[in-house]
Write a protein that binds this DNA or RNA. Structure first.
Lengths: 426, 426
DNA sequence: TACACCTCTGAATCTTCCA
DNA sequence: CTGGAAGATTCAGAGGTGT
């Protein structure tokens, strides 16, 4: 590891790979180029005629041949424990799949990885494309694989997962306990095994990592691929290295790497990037999506029935009500369990002021604790009690009434006892 | 819409579709069966020989032919505005893609939808498969498409959503301001257009929905497909209907439907799920767009913050509040969108009476329509307004005030004009 | 019909400001 | 001074428009 090697070759990868020995590479990652944005399927065949697969490939032969030669070379240079990850364009997905199935004989398909991300666009018609596919094949069944673990789903009860289970006398599954009746934890919290859907933020327009190269991938994506399929000191190859993200990631993780590209510009860019490998320290990924949220489901559900624009990333406002007053939307906030009405009010007031709102609505969820809060309440805030609070108060009122009725009933009864019994005796 | 039709046919879909007229169907959804779990790519060809696509398809011809005939029929019965959604097994993904590209000529590919879900597994080696692919093709460019909108990302800045933006002289994006330098609010934002990655929970093993049929899909998934590609009263076809989820979803959304399956068991199951096959015009389905399930969930969410005992399958009561009055729990009901306060009240009163409750709480969600309802209201019912209703009324009040203030301001201005101008002149 | 140019959008960063 | 929250900015994709 002390002597980490990265090599960048300016050449067509087919001829460059000829100089690489057979069974020498641990991982090949590639994001092949496409000759056309879209393949044309202008099949003008006779409907009555029996369908033939030749039709499907018409217009694709050149590309298929181009890729076949290269994939065959990739297969040759891979070690028996090696893997290949191919980044697929949507339109060529199925073609590459077919090619790989053929070259990597004996069902060495491992996974279809979905890289999903959120992205900007004002797509009007159809679904916004927001994923890319990466095909994962291995040369043999003895492929290297390091299991990575992800976070548990927010909805899972971790304790439940971690408790050891046994079967009781009736053979019914139950949680195991020790002699003191305490639960026994089965295994350490490793997390959930990584799934084949990877949510990794798309390279942001403001990211420092950006080089201006068109199809640049996030370093994080490549790091994950390298981590699961190689160990320290292994050798990674990218035959279409482009801006060199693969080599940067390999470097950062202590793997040797070879990059090939036919473009002079790409090779120079890669060499420069390797000089100072930078990786965007994605705040989103580090802190998690949840850390940006401030409206919880419960707060929103209290407001259900209103037409709302939920607001995250703002400590004071939970949502805007989509009915404007004086041309500005009205901010609304639900009082949290952990805060007093005054605390909620001042947070809301500050946020509303900065948005130039003339009015803001605070939904109170707990009985008031401060006798003088009405005078202290900022004037722009309108207070409304939550349904739950109203119901609770109504029930207390009813309970009180019920008790007092009982008391008066009992008194009446007692009165009768004293008074009437003589009558009965009479 | 009053006469919603669902038809379930026991037959091979190829022969059954022959009886369906050309250009009559708005949406075809299918989850085709697979002859083998995995296709075999036991290509023992000579490495030196030039790659030929015939190799790829060897062993697949039967299946390809089977599907080709059926997809061709599907193409025929589709209206010009119609779409098809095909649920793909991973191993046949690329085959179906190729077939569809051929049968749906002229690049009518729309989307590759990824249905992703979290699944429990202790898979040791490799990535946990946790997605399925749905291919979306349309017959022509004039396909029906209803845009659904989702929430903005947690990291998105609200100002950007609220404020109008322009470009300055240098062409750099900036927030727009009016002549006084005040921000201009943007037009109403609906949210983010739906992406092609759908995170929908896998059918929970214990879910009521589950019928025991192996490949059953969540109703939510089908509902989304139907919603984006059809309108009320349209006709949906599922040629491999299995347990009938497509037909159930179509019914819930007010679409006519035809289901075909070759298995007697599947057809019976579907008919049972739809209720009586002859009595398709059920009261439940007439209610329209939103399913009962969703409505009930929303009703309960309005009450969040209360300690409740939810009640299933009771026409009058949504839940009991876990605080007793006179030793009996208090029933509560939320007024539905489709009913008046009086209707809700009488349903609740009847149910509460039969439970011997002395008090019941009705949560009103809409402004009252009946002036004399207070006298008509059963005495055991206590009325409480929902938070949403209170907020809406408060906003109306504020709007009215704002208008009247403007008017009086204008009057004042006019007054000032008359009064002050002499002063200025002076 | 093809293509160049312009407009709109929102994710996630960078930057500033405030407590 | 420092850390975090709120505001400003960048940029690629999609679509519309005009030549």
């Amino acid at each position: 590891m002390g002597n980490l090697q990265s090599q960048v070759i300016l050449d067509d990868c087919l001829s460059a790979m000829k100089h690489i020995g057979s069974s020498t590479i641990d991982l090949v990652y590639l994001d092949p180029p496409f000759f056309t944005n879209r393949f044309h399927f202008s099949v003008s065949r006779d409907r009555k005629k029996r369908f033939s697969f030749a039709d499907v490939w018409s217009g694709l032969e050149d590309y298929a041949e181009f890729m076949e030669f290269r994939i065959t070379e990739i297969h040759r240079v891979l070690k028996d424990t090696g893997s290949v990850f191919i980044h697929c364009d949507t339109s060529a997905n199925f073609l590459l799949r077919a090619l790989l199935n053929s070259v990597f004989e004996g069902n060495q398909f491992r996974s279809e990885i979905i890289w999903s991300y959120r992205r900007w666009s004002n797509s009007a018609r159809g679904l916004l494309p927001s994923h890319q596919t990466i095909l994962f094949y291995s040369k043999t069944d003895q492929y290297k694989f390091n299991i990575l673990y992800g976070a548990y789903s927010e909805t899972t009860n971790i304790d439940q997962i971690l408790q050891l289970r046994t079967r009781d006398k009736q053979g019914i599954s139950a949680y195991a306990t020790d002699h003191e009746g305490k639960v026994i934890f089965a295994h350490e919290k490793k997390g959930v095994p990584l799934s084949d859907v990877w949510e990794i933020p798309f390279l942001n327009p403001k990211a420092k990592e950006r080089t201006g190269y068109p199809t640049q991938k996030p370093v994080l994506l490549l790091e994950r691929i390298i981590e699961i399929s190689t160990n320290m000191g292994d050798l990674v190859l990218d035959p279409f290295c482009g801006s060199g993200t693969t080599l940067v990631a390999a470097n950062l993780l202590g793997r040797h790497s070879i990059g090939i590209d036919i473009s002079q510009e790409a090779v120079e860019l890669t060499r420069n990037r390797l000089g100072s490998p930078t990786k965007t320290d994605s705040a989103l990924l580090k802190k998690g999506r949840v850390s940006y949220q401030n409206v919880d489901k419960e707060a929103l559900s209290i407001l259900s029935g209103l037409d709302l624009l939920p607001v995250q990333r703002n400590a004071g406002i939970d949502a805007f009500i989509k009915i404007p007053i004086d041309n500005s939307l009205v901010p609304i906030r639900v009082q949290r369990n952990t805060e007093t009405v005054m605390e909620a009010a001042s947070k809301l007031a500050r946020a509303a002021n900065s948005k130039n709102s003339t009015k803001a609505i605070l939904v109170r969820t707990k009985k008031n604790d401060d006798l003088f809060f009405n005078e202290k309440l900022p004037t722009l805030i309108e207070l409304i009690d939550s349904t739950a609070l109203c119901v609770r108060e109504k029930i207390e009122e009813l309970q009180a009434k019920s008790v007092s009725e009982k008391v008066s009933n009992r008194m009446l009864m007692g009165y009768n006892d004293q008074f009437c019994s003589p009558k009965v005796k009479f």
